[in-house]
Design a protein around this nucleic acid. Structure first.
Lengths: 230, 230
DNA sequence: GCGACTTAAAGTCACGTCAACTCTAAGTGG
DNA sequence: CCACTTAGAGTTGACGTGACTTTAAGTCGC
């Protein structure tokens, strides 16, 4: 950056977001990762599905711009937002060059309901997407890999959950994201060892069978600064 | 990105690089991380040190642009280059807004010699820098953290070394980067267990005392794609 | 009210990894 | 030939983890 000179040729700077949410799979009924896509209303790739995003806004930081654009196009307000990568290859977009700074985000289930807008926003199963515009398929694959890697060593799963939750619910999130089954006893052990869980002291009532204890996440900044990446 | 519109307000897109090399510390003589800085010749921050970089080049991908700019300003051709982060807060630069896509790079010792250009490029000890222009101090701190994290779980240390090297040399790189001493026996064990080291069969001759075996790194793509991040 | 059933939560055990340390190998120099 | 130095192999104990077992605490059916 140092020597900053203005851009002469046509280069657009865009901000897009890969948003993940958990919903039951339509066929299997299992909890599955979904993400919202926006139908393009102009060339190139008119009519195809693409990640929600838009041009960088003048008065907004990068993350704010991602949030605002997301709010405007899909009505979503994610609980977790982190920069993913900057994609800027010359040939990634026909016509003018576009450099996209891509974020990835997590939203709670109940947020999903607020988002169903018009016909131009739709949710898809993350591992079974239609062909996407631009290089967005690669971007989603990368975001999926990041999510799956990061959930194993950071407490981001809580972004999918309500403030209070049981260990079984937390485990269900991990199982859905990672597409595996996890041993309940072992999961409990290492979840408690991580020290980020605080027992509320209360138990979830009204369940059949033994009532599970409720937990809360330690009040720590869940906002991902550059520093905390790996 | 999806809806690409051109940038109307003054927004510059720059590409900068944090370059690391290993040289002996001037006082202690220990191997230490150094990095090249460029003296700014215009406002803002005229006269101050800043990361090498420049505006995104029209016909280059992001990484290529970083490489070319680096070559032009410092004469360096790094052996490892990976995207670090995109910095784009509104207030990070006085005057026109600058979004910087920052890379980090590793160069071999012998590359350092080729780089000493004019008075406007100088090498500094990475952990003891003068005040830098813009938010470049934060950027360097972040890059340092990334390097130190990544060297523990990826074989990037070879970017500092000649094609053939001994385990002691490899360990010296790790020790210099992490600023610790490492147990030679344990380091050997896990270095060999990682399967990325190939013994050349030969030993380094001419040393006092027992000659150490020489190793080579497995011929694998050391180019960092988005995929291989953590 | 009692047993069958289900999930929560704690405990056990074998295995693999790793840090700390010791021991042997293979050279050099006096 | 011995002292010295580094390379490299081996040993041990602590710890984390996967697979599994056991006990706790509730509901439901009869």
């Amino acid at each position: 950056m140092t020597i900053s000179s203005s851009i002469d040729q046509r280069v657009s700077l865009a901000v897009s977001t890969v948003v993940f949410a958990l919903r039951p799979h339509p066929v299997s009924g299992l909890m599955t990762l979904w993400l919202p896509l926006v139908r393009r209303i102009r060339e190139p790739y008119e009519g195809q599905w693409a990640l929600p995003g838009g041009p960088l806004e003048a008065d907004d930081d990068l993350a704010s711009s991602a949030q605002h654009t997301l709010e405007r196009t899909t009505g979503l307000a994610p609980r977790y937002l982190e920069q993913l990568y900057a994609f800027g290859n010359v040939d990634r977009s026909p016509g003018d060059r576009v450099v996209s700074i891509v974020y990835w985000a997590l939203v709670r289930q109940d947020e999903v309901a607020r988002s169903v807008d018009g016909e131009n926003v739709e949710w898809f199963v993350a591992d079974d997407l239609p062909p996407l515009a631009f290089d967005h398929t690669d971007i989603v694959d990368y975001a999926l890999a990041r999510l799956r890697a990061k959930i194993t060593y950071t407490p981001i799963a809580h972004a999918f959950l309500p403030p209070e939750f049981t260990l079984a619910e937390l485990r269900a999130v991990h199982e859905a994201v990672l597409r595996t089954t996890l041993d309940p006893a072992n999961f409990r052990r290492q979840a408690l060892a991580s020290k980020t869980l605080v027992p509320t002291g209360t138990c979830l009532q009204g369940t059949s069978h033994r009532p599970p204890a409720l937990f809360r996440f330690e009040a720590g900044a869940p906002s991902p600064a550059p520093e905390e990446q790996r």
